[in-house]
Write a protein that binds this DNA or RNA. Structure first.
Length: 491
RNA sequence: CGGGAUGUAGCGCAGUUGGCUAGCGCACCACGUUCGGGACGUGGGGGUCGGAAGUUCGAGUCUUCUCAUCCCGACCA
């Protein structure tokens, strides 16, 4: 059996309460499944944004912003795209309220009905492509490499905090290219950006691959994804990058003159990651003592807790602490010196463990006397007493170690929970009793994929890139297969 | 949208066949002693029992409707 979620983390609440909470909207509100992102949570999101944004710029992209509202008619243009989203759209029908003479309060002014309803974007392909049409005439206008940081709304039947909220924050890249090859390359480049970010910043190992036809994005020819394994043995799709072919260009009539002076449709990609990444961090690293944040994304990287009995002692300790704090900050480390007299040291220790602060320094009278400091790491909960000399480099070294250890730990967890399975009985047994990734042969048909899903709730997470060829028989149908694909139950 | 469960103080919960001033733990406030792993004592504040309607002398408790949350399905880049 895969490691259960920590006992104290029922519904993850022990873990995520410091980052987000469920939105507590007005009584009788029919808005459900929204989240409030608290300061610490938003700080994590800002770090995610900053790192990704830099990587986008490095790969030649710029940021843009498009409207939240999309005219309904835009959605009637790309058939499969609409089919994918129509069932979960919030629709604006009126633009004014008026006083309610009967019940008091306010009511919708029926006179203020919109001629054409507006859809609150579930994703921005349609409005962006409608605009791109006017920006592209010649191959000289290409490529367009744009990204948008925004919020979107999807009226999901069932929501799940972090992983599937009705409203969420994300980035969506939308690019236009002159050739098929260039667009495919773009989709693959961005997949690599996501994978690099997940592994280097989130300390989350991911498997890069393509989606089966059944799991593909509505309107895409190919969907690339990074897939990660959570501590409960379920898979989480952490990012996607789509090669859209010419579908959207045809739907929105986006043509350009190529070098041969011939009119052609442009080739497109889109790619995105969302606040779901915060859910991935939480579910991948946290333990019974609360959150564990990777140092590179932790809003506070070092917490310093003084131990004191009176004001003189605190003053003495503060005098020692301030140079350390300054030295660390000079090296770009975020430090919180918690000199509050309202909480005891023990309370603070537990508090920073809950919050997932990677490194904690403790300084008390004993340390002042000996010229030492106690250093504690969140990932292993180990403590050590160090000489104060050169403490900033020791801390920086430890932060790196923690970042690496979290990654290594997640890799070995994934290895220990990856199973090569060749028979259907074993497949069912592993899914039911152990969880994790299953590498199994598949006959390549959507029919088999659906049968497997019906019987086990497992889906094909990805067909790994650069997958080794290995002849075998489909674990379900027994038909010949050329490669193994990854099955898992997923969020 | 179907099945199940839940809704009582900021959080977690108890509240019997309808009955008297609605309780407990944590948190919060005051004072004192404490302070190197969530301290303790004493005192105190905080509630239209999710909402609406109904039955009743009397409703947290019963009935109907409604809203939300959680779980399981269905659905879901």
């Amino acid at each position: 059996m895969a490691k259960d979620f920590p006992s104290r983390a029922e519904n993850y609440s022990q873990w995520y309460n410091d980052l987000v909470i469920k939105a507590d909207l007005a009584e009788n509100s029919s808005v459900r499944g929204c989240m409030v992102i608290k300061p610490n949570g938003y700080a994590v999101w800002e770090k995610i944004q900053a790192a990704l944004d830099r990587m986008f710029k490095e790969t030649g992209h710029s940021n843009v912003y498009f409207p939240l509202f999309i005219p309904k008619s835009f959605f009637s243009k790309e058939a499969s795209h609409v089919e994918g989203f129509a069932k979960e759209c919030a629709v604006v029908t009126h633009y004014r309220l008026k006083a309610d003479p009967v019940n008091g309060g306010v009511m919708v002014d029926e006179d203020a009905k919109l001629e054409e309803e507006l859809i609150i974007r579930p994703t921005s392909e349609t409005i962006i492509w409608d605009t791109y049409k006017n920006w592209i005439q010649s191959y000289r206008d290409l490529p367009l490499l744009y990204n948008q940081w925004a919020n979107v709304v999807r009226w999901e039947m069932r929501t799940r905090l972090f992983l599937r909220t009705a409203e969420f924050l994300w980035q969506e890249g939308h690019t236009a290219h002159a050739t098929r090859e260039e667009a495919v390359k773009e989709a693959e480049t961005m997949l690599n950006v996501y994978a690099e970010f997940a592994e280097n910043y989130m300390a989350l190992p991911v498997i890069k691959g393509t989606k089966s036809a059944g799991e593909r994005f509505a309107g895409a020819l190919e969907t690339y994804a990074i897939e990660a394994l959570m501590q409960d043995g379920k898979a989480l799709q952490a990012g996607t990058s789509h090669f859209l072919g010419q579908n959207f260009a045809k739907a929105f009539d986006v043509k350009f003159l190529n070098k041969e002076n011939q009119l052609d449709y442009v080739w497109a990609t889109s790619w995105g990651v969302s606040t779901r990444l915060m859910g991935a961090i939480i579910m991948a690293h946290s333990d019974d003592n609360g959150l564990v944040l990777p140092p590179k994304l932790a809003p506070t990287q070092v917490a310093i807790v003084p131990v004191f009995k009176n004001a003189e002692q605190l003053a003495m300790i503060t005098e020692k602490v301030m140079p350390i704090k300054k030295a660390l900050e000079a090296k770009g480390i975020s430090v919180k010196y918690d000199n509050r007299e309202t909480h005891k040291p023990g309370w603070k220790f537990t508090e920073y463990e809950f919050k997932g602060v990677p490194v904690r320094l403790t300084i008390g009278p004993r340390d002042v006397e000996n010229g030492t400091v106690e250093i504690a790491r969140r990932d292993t909960l180990e403590k050590e007493v160090l000489q104060l000399k050169d403490i900033e480099n020791k801390v920086i070294h430890l932060l790196d170690q923690i970042q690496k250890n979290l990654y290594d730990r997640a890799v070995s967890f994934r290895e220990n929970n990856s199973h090569y399975v060749d028979t259907w009985d074993e497949f069912k047994d592993v899914i039911e009793n152990r969880g994790g990734f299953i590498y199994a042969h598949w006959d390549g048909t959507q029919e088999t994929e659906e049968k497997i899903k019906e019987e086990t709730k497992a889906t094909i997470r990805v067909i790994p890139l650069n997958n080794p060829r290995s002849k075998g028989k489909c674990v379900y149908s027994g038909k010949p297969s050329e490669e193994r694909v990854i099955f898992a139950r997923a969020y």
